[in-house]
Amino acid sequence: MTAVVDVNRVLGPLPHDDVPSRDETGLVAELDRLRIDTACVIHSYAVHGDPRDGNEALAGVTHPRLLPVPVLVPGPLGTSPWTGGAPLVRLCPRRHGWSVTGPHARRLFAELAAAGTTVLLPWDEVTAGEVHALASAAPAPRTVLTGTGYRALRELAELLEAHDSLYVDTSTLCGHRQVEWIAGRYGAHRVLFGTGAPVTDDAGPRYLLDTLDLPPDDAALIAGGNALRLMGGAA
């Protein structure tokens, strides 16, 4: 049976909405409802508050279907020097006020690449030029661009063409055959199932996963195989 891994999910309360995923019990119930086996979760406190508080809250996550994803901030006012230990991390440079091209960021990216850690990077947190600079570094960490959507497709295609270290999630690839086009041109191994829920819809990407017009092996990679491979340290 194909494993379904949501690589892009939020645990915890949201500032302006009452969501089921405000706690572990509610989030696991949502996973059951949508037939999702595992979710890689950041804590909402790490996005809407202090990342250090969110990462600390993640340390209390106990359910085996929830995989904690710390949010990192480089520099002396950041989350602390990176010492490894997490196969997947998330970065929010615009929201947290740091530069992707700054010296502390470059050091962090090199450390993440050396550790084999995969990065989740929301499209609305960076420019295409910043992504290009990040992916052009040597070494460059494997980076999953999340929340791209149809308005970003031209820039996204150019970046995927230029950099093998870049991947994309399905959270907002909801246009007609967008996932099939990317998988056909760049390989199904470059696409990961992700919902961005509860900030964005989860039922749409989950339905899309069931209706992909792709060979079963490719669909299985997108559903969970790619996420499990990347979190295991393989490219």
Rank of each mutant, 00 (worst) to 15 (best):
P20A: 10
D6H: 07
V89Y: 04
T146M: 11
T172N: 00
P141T: 08
G49K: 02
A183H: 03
L134E: 05
E30N: 07
A188V: 07
D213S: 08
W82S: 00
T25K: 11
L208K: 03
V61L: 08
L134A: 03
D218T: 10
C40E: 11
A219E: 04
G194N: 11
L58V: 15
L34N: 09
E125Q: 09
T148C: 14
E111D: 15
V28N: 08
N55V: 15
L192Y: 11
L145V: 09
H176P: 05
P215Y: 14
S80N: 05
T2S: 13
L145H: 09
E161R: 12
V10N: 12
V119P: 07
R151V: 05
P74F: 01
G184N: 14
E111Q: 13
P93W: 05
E125T: 15
C40Q: 08
R33L: 03
D37I: 09
L134G: 04
V4E: 02
L34V: 06
L208V: 04
L159G: 02
Y186K: 07
A29G: 06
G85Q: 13
I36N: 01
R154A: 08
R177W: 01
P74V: 02
V28M: 10
P76W: 00
F109C: 01
Y186W: 15
Y150R: 13
L120R: 15
A29W: 06
S99Q: 03
A138V: 10
V5N: 07
R190W: 13
P139C: 02
T101I: 00
T118W: 12
N55P: 10
T170L: 04
T62D: 15
T25Q: 14
A135N: 02
N226L: 02
G116A: 12
L31C: 09
R65D: 09
T79K: 04
V10Y: 05
A128I: 04
R94E: 15
A105E: 01
C92N: 15
D169Q: 15
E125Y: 08
H43D: 13
G225I: 14
A137H: 03
A114I: 12
D50F: 13
G97N: 04
G60S: 14
W123A: 15
P76H: 00
R154F: 05
L221F: 05
R35N: 15
Y150N: 04
G149T: 12
R154D: 15
A152M: 02
L11I: 14
D53W: 05
L159W: 03
